[in-house]
Structures are given as C-alpha cells and as structure tokens.
Amino acid sequence: AEEKRLSEISNEMKDLAARARTRKLAPQEYQGGSTAISNLGMFGIKDFAAVINPPHASILAVGAGIETAVVRDGKIEARTIMSITLSTDHRAVDGALGAKLINAVKTLIEKPAGMLA
C-alpha cells in the first residue's frame, strides 16, 4: 500500500469488496496479513471492540461518524465524532506502537490531504 497511489488502493478495494459480496474471492486474496479492519460504522454502530483472528496481530474497529456537541474555544459546536478501537495481541504488538498507529490514523482522518502526498 505504501507504494501505491490512493486512487489505486481505492479501485482495488472496490473490486475486492464487490467480489467478496458475490463470493468470488480466491483464498489467497483474503488470507494472511498481520492486521485487519472491521467497519460496523456503516450499520450505525457507534463503537465496538473487534476480536483478533489469527494469524493477525491486530484489528482496527471503525465505528460510525456521529454528530456530537463539542466545546471549541468556549463555544458549543456540532462536530462529527468517529470512534476507532485497536485490539492487539501484546505478544506481537507493543501497546505504545499501537497508540502511535491510532494517532497516525487520527491525523490522516482529520487532515485527509496528507494521504495524497
């Protein structure tokens, strides 16, 4: 992924998702890897804790973006807040490293133009 353009990743993900829905993925296309992402946000789930499936060492749980009242500079404003939770196998992934990953994801979501660089 680090060597691909964002548009390439997007197109590949759309293709994989479409073929997964029709059960036409080959096993090598969904097996292996070290981490996974589970998105229940599209079903309106605010937050959840995803379970790690071996051989993965971590899984990122993505919840829905919910409009929430927040205080900014002493004023109440409506903001969309999204919950993400990282579950890790601490035998393979140090918690501090997991926290750095969550922070990087947060930064990219808050400033998506950073993904285009």
Rank of each mutant, 00 (worst) to 15 (best):
E67L: 04
A26L: 14
E77T: 14
M13G: 01
A61Q: 02
D94H: 13
I45Y: 05
E67C: 04
M115H: 08
G65K: 00
E12S: 14
I9H: 01
A36P: 07
R19S: 13
Q31A: 14
G74F: 02
A49S: 12
L86K: 05
K24N: 12
I81S: 03
P27R: 02
E77F: 07
R21C: 04
K100S: 07
G44Y: 04
H90Y: 02
P27T: 01
R19W: 09
P112T: 09
K14L: 04
R19M: 12
A17H: 11
G33R: 13
F43H: 14
F48G: 06
A50G: 07
I109F: 06
P112G: 12
I84L: 15
D47Q: 06
Y30M: 10
T22H: 06
A69C: 11
A69N: 10
H90R: 15
A50Q: 03
L6D: 06
T85R: 04
Q31T: 15
D94M: 10
A26Y: 10
L86H: 07
G95T: 11
P27W: 00
D73K: 00
G32C: 03
A36Q: 09
A92F: 13
D73A: 03
A64E: 01
N53V: 15
I102W: 02
K24Q: 14
D94V: 11
G44K: 09
D73E: 00
T88V: 15
R72S: 13
T88Q: 14
D89C: 03
R5L: 02
Q31L: 13
A20L: 00
T85F: 05
I76Q: 04
D94W: 10
A113P: 05
L16I: 14
A92V: 11
A26Q: 14
E110F: 04
V70E: 08
I81H: 00
R23S: 13
L40H: 11
V93I: 15
A36C: 12
T88P: 02
Y30C: 09
P55Q: 04
V70K: 01
S58H: 10
N11M: 10
I9S: 05
E8W: 01
E110A: 05
E2D: 15
T68F: 05
E8V: 06
F48I: 03
P55A: 07
P54D: 10
K100A: 09
N11C: 08
S83C: 08
S34A: 12
G32P: 05
D73M: 01
T88W: 07
A50I: 03
R21K: 13
K46E: 15
L116D: 10
T107C: 09
F48M: 07
K4H: 04
K4L: 10
D89A: 08
M42N: 06
R91D: 15
E29W: 11
E8N: 10
E67D: 07
G114H: 00
K24C: 08
V105Q: 09
A96P: 04
T88A: 15
K14A: 03
G33K: 12
E29M: 11
A50T: 01
K24V: 08
A49R: 02
L16C: 12
V51K: 06
P27V: 04
